[in-house]
Design a protein around this nucleic acid. Structure first.
Length: 595
RNA sequence: GGUCCUGUAGCUCAACUGGAUAGAGCAACUGCCUUCUAAGCAGUAGGUUCCAGGUUCGAGUCCUGGCAGGAUCACCA
């Protein structure tokens, strides 16, 4: 039982003895707001019908009775109907002692549940951009958080490696590539393929213009442009397993994967399993048959298969084309089954942009109708678009922020800032570059993760990434400061682990607020895990760093004359640094020892 | 047009799922480096929480109706 629950139990007993009513609610204490004195607050208002007195009086009576023989609470104050409880400093100190010696502090015990997190899921016809960054950072962070929350996590990447888009790149390459390779051109594989995707679009537009000038209608021209027909032809050949087309496809996808691997590794994300649509796109047809047999789906005259979800307030949805080929939904039905077969998950998370909200609503509903018992554990972690000041990003129009470019710019900005501050004296070149990378990725990840995923966000390349205030580097800086303290303590051979809480009787406010935050770390992980919410962790890491910095500037550590207090202050700082490191780790952000 | 999401300080975001005087950061202004890292700390200023009703001891939060922005409603993925 944790501290809060212990107090709730005591308070329940007191309330019962005074008013002869058992409080049924769980979790009825809340943290006291900053402006008031106290640690936890009991709101009396909801219980007025049992107390039958003015809220102030009831609060006072409960408070008095509670502190008579409470193990935990020694003071209280009442403001209107709010009973604020102060926990005994000695209790905080004991709690801190416990926390300090728990190596994995904050992590929840294994819960025997398995969760699959699918994220990233790139197309192989172009490099990753800013939108993918949000997806990847979210997916990776949620995986880390669920892992800390006691789940067994499988990170999965479903690569969209087939279809008309990749044929467009292949065709343009065939026509204009002159045998260029990543090696010969010095261009990273995914960027090289992206180059030909753009080239295709250019030629395609040219042909449309030509057709329109010769009197063809625009819509017709868009469908009939020879290069598009050629790409469609290529897709057909691919599906027929034409060796030349498949060979080119393999080569070009290989280049893309090399490029992606480099980008993923720099982003610090990874996967336990890859699925490829080229291998899964035919799945799901059996499920269509199953649905027809069960009478959940129906066939139209032309042979196409549909599901009618109008009873659930949705539309009719196509599941199989008249020519018997699959659509996106067909594949996703099949892949859902495949994932379950592979992992027997309790939960399956899809990190996918909010433009597919409707798709997943339909997908989950169909699986439920089909009687898949795993369907209840599925969740679409939907996130909003990242917009630029100029508006929406469009890959074909060149208005995207490329992921590799952005990381380069960030590292460059980090270098400039650091050099201006003269902070790299004594760093080797390698250490300095390492630091820039840590700061760049820290700033970027924190910026993207501190916001509620549902919200679309504006990214202004010049202004969005800061190194001050509510940012990744601010938290990293706090960690580096503490690391310096710990280094110094070790140099001075201070055995800070041996501090004795029994000898401490007076604690500064700043220390108590940090205790409160440290104590709540497991709850934060719990909350973040059940809501798939990295932003909760980001907010926490910031609060902790902020609060510690208050302590840091107000209180001298090595100026402390009392030997035991000195040890305690170092240990206290150490515990904060460790918790900062852990919580940032849950966001996929590493923290430097020096900066 | 139907459905879903969003709307909070000039800007970017919080608000423990219905609690107190709505909080941070950026930008602006004022202080604090001979001390363990000033990428920091303290302070000032900034609000009709899009609007109108309703529910109740209490609403940024829940309900109804509007307004604004976005997404989606393809034999695309």
């Amino acid at each position: 039982m944790n501290l809060k629950e212990s107090i709730e139990k005591e308070l329940k007993a007191v309330f019962f003895s005074l008013f002869d009513h058992k409080i049924d609610e769980k979790d009825f204490l809340q943290p006291t707001r900053k402006e008031f004195s106290g640690d936890y607050t009991f709101v009396v208002f909801p219980y007025l019908k049992y107390t039958r007195q003015k809220p102030e009086d009831a609060g006072k009576r409960i408070g008095e009775k509670l502190i008579e023989n409470s193990q935990w609470v020694d003071r209280f104050n009442v403001v209107k109907g709010f009973l604020n409880l102060n926990i005994k400093p000695s209790v905080w100190l004991d709690r801190f002692h416990q926390i300090f010696h728990e190596e994995d502090y904050g992590f929840l015990p294994p819960n025997k549940q398995k969760v699959v997190v699918e994220y990233s899921s790139p197309n192989t016809n172009k490099p990753l951009h800013l939108g993918h960054l949000r997806n990847n950072f979210l997916g990776y962070s949620v995986s880390q958080i669920l892992d800390a929350g006691g789940f067994e996590v499988e990170k999965v990447n479903l690569v969209n490696d087939r279809g008309i888009h990749i044929c467009k790149s292949m065709l343009a390459y065939q026509k204009f590539g002159n045998g260029e390779t990543p090696g010969s051109s010095g261009i990273k594989g995914d960027h090289l393929i992206g180059k030909y995707y753009v080239r295709f679009d250019k030629e395609y537009k040219k042909e449309i213009d030509g057709l329109v000038q010769n009197g063809t209608g625009k819509e017709h021209a868009e469908k009939e442009a020879p290069i598009l027909l050629e790409a469609q032809q290529m897709l057909k050949k691919w599906e027929e397993n034409d060796s030349e087309v498949v060979g080119l496809w393999k080569t070009m996808n290989g280049w893309v994967y090399e490029g992606f691997d480099a980008t993923y590794s720099r982003m610090g994300v990874s996967f336990d399993k890859y699925y490829y649509e080229s291998e899964t796109y035919l799945l799901g047809k059996a499920i269509v048959d199953e649905g027809l047999e069960k009478g959940i789906f129906y066939k139209k005259d032309n042979g196409s298969v549909w599901v009618d979800l109008s009873d659930e307030g949705l539309d009719e949805k196509l599941l199989l084309r008249a020519d018997g080929t699959s659509v996106y939904m067909t594949q996703d039905l099949g892949t859902a089954d495949l994932k379950y077969k592979d992992f027997q998950f309790n939960q399956s998370i899809y990190v996918v942009g909010n433009e597919q909200d409707y798709h997943f609503q339909v997908l989950f509903l169909i699986l439920k109708k089909l009687g898949r018992n795993y369907a209840g554990g599925m969740h679409h972690l939907s996130y909003g678009m990242v917009d630029l000041p100029a508006g929406k990003m469009k890959s074909r129009e060149g208005t995207v922020v490329d992921a590799d470019d952005l990381m380069n710019e960030m590292a460059e900005t980090a270098r400039r800032h650091t050099e201006e501050l003269g902070k790299i004296d004594g760093f080797t070149e390698e250490q300095a570059l390492d630091l820039y990378e840590t700061l760049a990725l820290g700033a970027l990840k924190f910026f993207l993760l501190k916001v509620d995923p549902k919200k679309r966000m504006l990214f202004n390349p010049e202004e969005s990434i800061q190194f001050h205030g509510n940012t990744g580097p601010f938290i990293q800086y706090t960690h580096a400061r503490i690391a310096a303290i710990v280094r110094k303590a070790e140099q001075l051979e201070i055995d800070y682990q041996s501090f004795d809480v029994k000898q401490i009787d007076n604690l500064e406010d700043a220390v108590l607020s940090v205790f409160f935050l440290l104590n709540k770390f497991p709850d934060i992980i719990q909350e973040a895990a059940s809501n798939y919410a990295p932003s909760v962790v980001a907010q926490y890491a910031y609060d902790l760093a902020k609060e510690y910095n208050r302590f840091y500037t107000e209180i001298s550590i090595f100026g402390e004359p009392d030997d035991n207090l000195l040890k305690f202050k170092v240990a206290f700082s150490y515990a904060v640094a460790r918790t900062i490191k852990t919580s940032m780790g849950l966001l996929g952000i590493s923290v430097p020892e020096r900066m």
